[in-house]
Each structure stands twice: as C-alpha cells, then as structure tokens.
Design a protein around this nucleic acid. Sequence first.
DNA 1: GATTACATACCGGCCGGTCGGTATTGACCT
DNA 2: AGGTCAATACCGACCGGCCGGTATGTAATC
Lengths: 212, 212
Amino acid sequence: MGTDAAISRKGRPPNPQLRARIIGAALELFAEQGYDATSVNQVVVRAGVTKGALYHYFAAKEDLLYEIYRGLLDQQLADLDRITAEEPDPSRALQAVIHDLVVTTIRHRREVAVFGRESTRLSPERWQVLQRDWRRYQDVVRTLIREVQHRGMVNAAASPEVVSWMIFGFTTSLPNWYRPDGPKEPSDIAEEAGDFVLAAIGTTHIEGMRTP
Amino acid sequence: MGTDAAISRKGRPPNPQLRARIIGAALELFAEQGYDATSVNQVVVRAGVTKGALYHYFAAKEDLLYEIYRGLLDQQLADLDRITAEEPDPSRALQAVIHDLVVTTIRHRREVAVFGRESTRLSPERWQVLQRDWRRYQDVVRTLIREVQHRGMVNAAASPEVVSWMIFGFTTSLPNWYRPDGPKEPSDIAEEAGDFVLAAIGTTHIEGMRTP
DNA sequence: GATTACATACCGGCCGGTCGGTATTGACCT
DNA sequence: AGGTCAATACCGACCGGCCGGTATGTAATC
C-alpha cells in the first residue's frame, strides 16, 4: 500500500498530460516575458487549453510559479544527498557538487532564470519553504568548503560564505549567457568552474596544473 | 559652449528635485515589488507628487527603469577607465576593478537588483544600448584576466569567460544576500572576492610578488 | 502674453479569477 | 449486463477592478 497509485475514484479521471502542458507553457512564457507580463490567457492559448482547465488544476497563477521551481529544487537536493553520501573526500565531493549544480542549472536554465527573477512574487509562506530547502543546499556546500580549506594550505582569505556566493552567483547567472550552440559543452563549463573554485580555496589541483 | 547650463528659457522653470524624487520613489518600489507589480500610481503617491507631474517629466513608465540603471552604469564605466589608466600592473588592476565593482554594487544594490531582474522589460533599443556599454566592461575584465594568467603560473584551467562570469555572477547576486547590518563591511567582502579570484587564476596574492 | 509646470478627471483595455453549465466517467444496485 | 447516480473534468462567457496613458485646465514665470 502507499506506493500503489491505482486508488480508484469516482468520476472522470484527470489528464496528467494536460496539467504538464500547462506548466510547460507557463515555463516558456515566464522565461520569455516574465511572470507579471504573462497573462493566464497567454498561458492557456500556448498550452492549447481553456481557462477553465487551468483553474481546474491550479488554484491561482502563483501555483504555476511554485511548481515550476519545486521540481528542480527537489532534484538538485536529491543529487546533493547522493553525492555527499557516496564521496567521503570533501575536495572531490565539492568538485562533484559544483559539477552537478552547473550541469543541472544549464539543463533547466529556464526554470532557474524564472526563479531568479520572480521568486519574490511568491507568497511569503511558499517563499519561506523554498528558502528553507535551498538553505540546506547552501549549508552543505559551505561545510564542504570549510573542510577543504581546513585540510589544504589556505592560500586565499575568502570565507566560506563569499566562496559559496561566488558559486551560486555563477550558476544563477548561467541562464543569462549560456548558449546551447556555443563552443563549450555544459560539462566543460562545469569542470572549469570546479577547477577554479578548488584552485582558489587551497587544494593544488594536480592534473590541471600547467606552466606557461 | 554647450556645457553652460544657464540657457534662459521662457515659462516657469522646472524642478529638478521633483524629478529626482520620482526616480527615487520608483527605485524603491521597483526594488521592493518588481517593475510590473508597481503601478505608476504607487510611484506618484510615494514620491508625493501627481500623475501629471510624472508624465510631464517622463514619457513612459519604462523611462524610469532606464534612467535608474543608466546612472550606475556610467559611474562604474568611469571607475573602470580611471583604474585601468592609473594601474599598469594587470594583477593589481584586476584586483582594483573587482574591489570597485563589489563596493559600488553594494552601495547601489537596489539599482543592481532592479536591473538584474527587469532589464528584459526595456525596449530592445534601450536594452541594446545598456548591453553594449556593459559589454565593454566585460571585455576589459577579460583582457585583464588573460594578462594575469599569461604572466603567472596558471594553476586552474578556467577560461577568462568563465572567470569573468564568476565575478559578475557574484556581484549580481550581492543584493540578494548582503545585509548592511551584517558582520562584514563592503570593503571586506570586496577584498575577499578579489583575493579569491586572484588566487584562483595563478598569482599568489601576497604583497610584492614577482613580475616577469 | 507666450510658454512652461504641474493638477485632476477620465478612458479603453486587459487583468486574474469566477461560475453556471455540460460531458464523461466509475461505483453501485438490481 | 445494463441502467442509475454522483462525482469529476472541463468549457467559456462574464465580472469588478486596476492599469498605463491622456486631455484639459490653471497657476506661475519669463
């Protein structure tokens, strides 16, 4: 019980694809035009549904915004837990976390762009929920940074807070400049970012080391 | 000629303070609520003026957004030129540029927050103008990064593009987390950021380092 | 008396959201 | 197996309200 989704109900069954289409259309439009500048009419037109359908699946326009980011955040948190569980070495773990963060951010760059711009448009309660979950991500990253700094020779006087914001600032800015037809693959960018941070906070990155 | 502002005109003289108050009120509200979520009525109420006054000084709501960021960008570009003209050493120049960028961003964090979120709401022409000017800033920073990497031992395989986006991503994220009542002064944060970047791209940031 | 600086009343339009209606389905009874 | 009922899925016309912007009037200053 519990995992079995075949709970039988009365009445006509819902259409999950319709719901997904609505969220997809909202994501596209919010990314292109912004949340406030996008009307629910535009959303239903792009999704090919009616207003009644939208307000059947969602109580308010704000729900769309919340669900758009909820999925991505859950996935990134799951990745974070997996990585920290599998990799005991803090230096490698931090590298892996940065790599995953960059790659998933690029993959879901529209979600990230929307959330970076419009997160303040959520209700205070929902904003707090996302804020709390994201805070956990921050704390894990900062702890990793501290451990790495503690082990190696600290050759930069940067606090874990500033370093973490350097990382997160980089990722949130990714949607602004990353172009899928550009010369670099997402994993290339992720590796560069990881090397950069690791080099700065004290580990000599052996294999990447070069001399002019 | 031209610089003389005392051109005498007919009719009642304008009130520059009123104009400034309107922009100030718009800045506050845009930062608090976002551009679209702020009505021109709210702006005039907060500024203590009437709608007629606003539309006498500005042709459209969009003008407010443009002027808000125009001033900051001009100042930061002027700072950039001053620093690069005064400091021939690329490593020191980069450090100084980062320091100035961080400090001015913190000082004008509301402008930066507004522009980071709402720059896409400008007309294409105006967006291009700001984009072009900002592009120049980017190019100078990347050139500095290249020069520093060329001189010192390169111990991180990060391209100037990624490094520059690390810097700019950090500064654009500053309004999201900097708190004036926090433990760190703006110059402290600026120094940490500069040390971090310089440490990562190959120079030991200790005073009196080698130069080829 | 020409010109500028504001004030105020006003407008068409679109906004997010609602609501009564209808079609479609499963549960249940016989 | 077939019919009945109730619950759900959607439809689309409609609403009050506010939005950015304007038009007209009046007071101040050259």
